[in-house]
Design a binder for these strands. Structure first.
Lengths: 221, 221
DNA sequence: CCATCCTCCCGTACGTCGTTCGGGTGACCG
DNA sequence: CGGTCACCCGAACGACGTACGGGAGGATGG
């Protein structure tokens, strides 16, 4: 008792390219960029791909997989600099790119939390960092410690900066007024102020230079 | 047509202390510690407090508020050290406590992402940090930059360490095998290894010392 | 040429979630 | 004793992640 052939669609839809993991992740990144992490939904993602929501589960195990893949994907954009004579400059270049990637995809900060970073793009960048530090003369646990120190600094910076930037656009006045109202409770904070929008970049590089200086002096020569 | 009086409960339940924001946040922290961030639910939280789930909304605007309050609450445990003669030691003591708080509440890392830190406990600790750095001779944007550098380093370290620790307990073998299998793709990573469980503490303090060294040399005197 | 399998797709449905709404109920005040 | 207020809650709504069973179309192999 099946329906008449004439009423059925002959070709379901072959105008769109076939669904792949890459296409899913690409759309996920676009959706996250546009709407933020709270609006990423399997249904919405599927709609953008002109497919059914449950179809996604053929290519991906869970929604969390999509997030993890999207997170690793954005690190594919950070370029590995040419290895130059000054290893410090190489580290700064790599880490500036890392930070820029996180800043231009603010949802990445929220996705990062408490999750091991094992994606190929992240691993490749970490390996590059290891390589630069090794060429600089570090080895073993000392090298691992230095690499983690640098990476942690960068990730923490990007994380906080994303939070501060969102704060600036959405509730800057409220937060500022909150601070003035409680300036007796936070005297030093009120006295010296916060970083303003255009100071973040310089502060980031400056802090990183200080960290590298300290690491170099203690661990090299 | 209301029900007979005799069938109704006379006293709803006055054995429990009255519901307050503090009690809600306290139970939320306990629930988060036990079950993790994915299992925190308004209904589950209410059940633990012997109340209806919708009652919570009288004391709290959204679930996100609960998370933000819980996050700030755990920073109430980090103690402000006595201001001693060595400002570096003070910073290290404060930041070690900060890190310890995050490590003993692993969900905090996931909650932190991309959110401005404006709670009173966090602000008080930040103010204390500002105070220590001011006493050390820093001021203005230089001080703010240094404070952010230190705080970002600590937060990033705790974040990564939580991820690595979870990785260690849940998928250590798989991750290790994954690395050996691709050791040609990540040669430096495979050559120098990762930090092992008991090296994290020392690496954290060492990196922080390096950072403080660099900051002191560049910005002081 | 038909039967069979594999790949990819999807409608339906279940259980759970955050949150809104409208109505309680007791304490206190006049 | 009527009314206002602080606090509480059951029911319901819409959205979510995802399990399941099935179905189409090409490939395979007899």
């Amino acid at each position: 008792m099946s329906e008449s052939v004439w009423l059925r669609q002959q070709r379901p839809r072959r105008e769109a390219p076939p669904l792949t993991r890459e296409r899913i992740v690409g759309e996920a990144v676009a959706l996250l960029d546009e709407k933020g992490v709270g609006r990423l939904t399997m249904r919405r993602l599927a709609e953008r791909l002109n497919t059914g929501s449950t179809t996604l589960y053929w290519h991906v195990k869970t929604k969390d997989d999509v997030l993890e893949l999207a997170l690793d994907a954005i690190f594919g954009d950070v370029s590995l600099p040419e290895a130059g004579p000054d290893w410090r400059a190489d580290v700064i270049a790599l880490m500036s790119g890392w930070r820029a990637a996180m800043l231009s995809h603010p949802w990445s900060a929220a996705v990062l939390g408490g999750r091991p970073l094992l994606g190929p793009n992240v691993m490749a960048r970490t390996d590059f960092l290891y390589g630069v530090l090794a060429a600089a003369g570090l080895a073993g646990p000392r090298l691992a410690g230095a690499a983690y120190a640098v990476a942690n600094y960068v990730i923490g910076s990007a994380l906080m900066e994303v939070g501060a930037r969102r704060d600036e656009t959405v509730a800057h006045d409220a937060a500022a007024e909150h601070l003035v109202r409680n300036r007796d409770r936070y005297p030093h904070l009120a006295a010296h102020g916060h970083l303003s929008g255009d100071e973040w970049d310089a502060a980031f590089v400056h802090g990183l230079e200080c960290l590298l200086d300290g690491l170099a002096r203690v661990s090299l020569r």
